[in-house]
């Protein structure tokens, strides 16, 4: 099953208004992504780690997410120090390790990890439905918001369809290997997923029309911004702005 592993909890971030969280995360990510000053990036990493601690998430889970991201960054560490021009700190045969390259790889590592950590602490602590609801309040186009809602709903049904088909394959002794038979089987599996979900989408849409759907989603439980939400938003935004001043 596809789980929202961080969305349950009762920390400060779990209770905060999702609209505030989206705005702050976006601002933070953009500023960190375009920054190239060490002082502000170390500051960003500090803020990000602090945010994860405040969100009280399971450390093991957070680390496993970071490992996935850093496996790609590791590849850059293997290449960038050699491909950068500049002063060589160490020569290995014909290859020179340049200081610039190491600095650049470090820069990317800090940036990437801080953005991911803030994403985990702020965004992943809300349920997807709340986030999408918040997107609506942030005035994203109606159809796009509906797409988010429908897609999230279908991801679960299509994924369980996939698991069902995959189990059927396993029961019949299918062992995936590098050969045409395997690829053919997977292609048919995808085809079957498409066929079944097309039928389902038609049924669902007709059912919605029967219940008077006119292209608009009504929300029943609106967010109520408390003063605390505003205050928290202002504090967080000033922290992020502090990063700009540092650079």
């Amino acid at each position: 099953m596809i789980k929202e592993k961080f969305s349950k909890g009762d920390s400060f971030f779990h209770k905060l208004d999702p609209r505030v969280k989206i705005v702050v995360t976006l601002l933070f990510s953009v500023i960190v992504a375009v920054s190239d000053k060490y002082t502000s990036l170390w500051g960003a990493l500090f803020l990000a780690v602090a945010a994860v601690i405040v969100a009280r998430l399971r450390t093991k889970e957070v680390i496993s997410r970071l490992l996935v991201v850093n496996s790609f960054i590791f590849l850059l560490w293997l290449m960038l120090p050699f491909t950068f021009q500049g002063e060589k700190v160490y020569t290995l045969g014909s290859l020179g390790i340049s200081q610039e390259g190491i600095k650049y790889a470090l820069l990317i590592t800090i940036k990437s990890n801080s953005i991911i950590l803030v994403g985990i602490a702020l965004l992943s602590t809300s349920s997807i439905f709340n986030l999408v609801h918040a997107l609506r309040h942030l005035h994203l186009p109606d159809k796009l918001v509906q797409l988010f809602f429908f897609t999230y709903r279908y991801i679960h049904t299509i994924h369980s369809e996939y698991i069902r088909l995959n189990n059927a394959l396993k029961i019949r002794g299918f062992k995936p290997q590098t050969n045409l038979h395997t690829y053919k089987t997977y292609a048919y599996l995808v085809g079957m997923m498409l066929v079944r979900s097309y039928d389902r989408s038609k049924r669902v849409y007709n059912a919605m029309l029967c219940r008077g759907f006119k292209g608009k989603f009504w929300t029943l439980n609106h967010f109520v911004s408390k003063k605390a939400d505003f205050a928290a938003g202002i504090v967080m935004i000033s922290c992020v702005m502090g990063l700009v001043l540092l650079s």
Binding site: Y154, I158, K202
Partner: peptide, 14 residues
């Protein structure tokens, strides 16, 4: 919209 969402989720699950 439902059709686009279906293919979006197929892309995700794939």
């Amino acid at each position: 919209v439902p059709k686009v969402a279906i293919l979006s989720s197929v892309f995700f699950v794939a």
